[in-house]
Design a protein around this nucleic acid. Structure first.
Ligand SMILES: [Zn+2]
Ligand SMILES: [Zn+2]
Ligand SMILES: [Zn+2]
Ligand SMILES: [Zn+2]
Lengths: 135, 135
DNA sequence: ATTGACCTTATAGTAGCTTTATAGTTTTAA
DNA sequence: TTAAAACTATAAAGCTACTATAAGGTCAAT
């Protein structure tokens, strides 16, 4: 299986696959005589794993760590759980921050009652003067 | 006022100020004979505006756009509102995505009942097999 | 005269790719 | 048969919003 087929199979760009190889997330495949990469099913599974992790918002470093656990499966899984717990709390704090941000933006947006000149618009004035209902 | 003072006043690094100048967000200040930048209050206000926008999560491109409205204040403010509405919906979709993500991560985390070997851990199995309670 | 604090420019690094440039290979069509 | 298309390769730059480093010039004080 060549890189283009693998890419299509998983809905990834070929450059992304080469990038993962370069980053050490995907083992270097064998090459044909012409230098073309040849992939096996194993590569497909590994790539699928990477993509699912990315969809879960895990960083490449975190994925790397998870892979190291997979490659040495006779440890206790506490490290896996710790990684996931960390990531969950990271996601939660992002949510909290964005919700606070949304509040601010909505209240700022409400300070314009439409169809004025920019000069008189409460939005720009609100940003300029810093009355952004802090926190 | 020199760059260091301005930086301290606004809680920004001096490189950040030079960076904003280079990006066209902050007008190039006058220079002393020795080449040192000299800032006025206007610069301070402009920098404060930039920083408040950044705290609101606006991109430098969006800030640039807002500045262009400020610099031509006799248009209707519809463009300002449109920009803000776009940004709000962007933030909201981020929140929605992160909440869905949190759900997935929590359910994945629940699939490990602790203290197993990695081999038997439901977390890695869950990612590998893709039973991630999709959506 | 030398230390230290400040300023200058230029360059590289961060994350996770995407895009571009340039070139070689294979497949398909005229 | 040959020329175009589709595919592959590597290397390098671009993206965002900075941050950090290097190598050096300027200024006040000791
Ligand atoms: Zn994480
Ligand atoms: Zn308005
Ligand atoms: Zn935005
Ligand atoms: Zn487990």
């Amino acid at each position: 299986m060549r890189i283009g087929q693998l890419a299509q199979l998983l809905g990834v760009e070929t450059q992304t696959i080469r990038f993962y190889e370069q980053q050490g997330l995907l083992p270097p495949p064998d090459r044909q005589d012409n230098g073309y990469r040849v992939y096996t099913e194993k590569h497909g599974e590994r790539l699928a794993f990477i993509r699912r992790c990315r969809i879960l918002g895990l960083s490449l470093a975190e994925i790397h760590e998870l892979q190291s656990y997979q490659d040495d499966p006779h440890q206790p899984c506490t490290a896996v759980n710790a990684l996931l717990d960390d990531h969950i709390s990271h996601v939660r704090s992002q949510i909290t921050a964005l919700q606070a941000l949304e509040k601010q933006l909505v209240s700022l947006r409400a300070s314009c009652n439409d169809d004025r000149e920019v000069e008189a618009c409460g939005v720009l004035a609100g940003i300029s003067e810093g009355n952004m209902h802090q926190q």
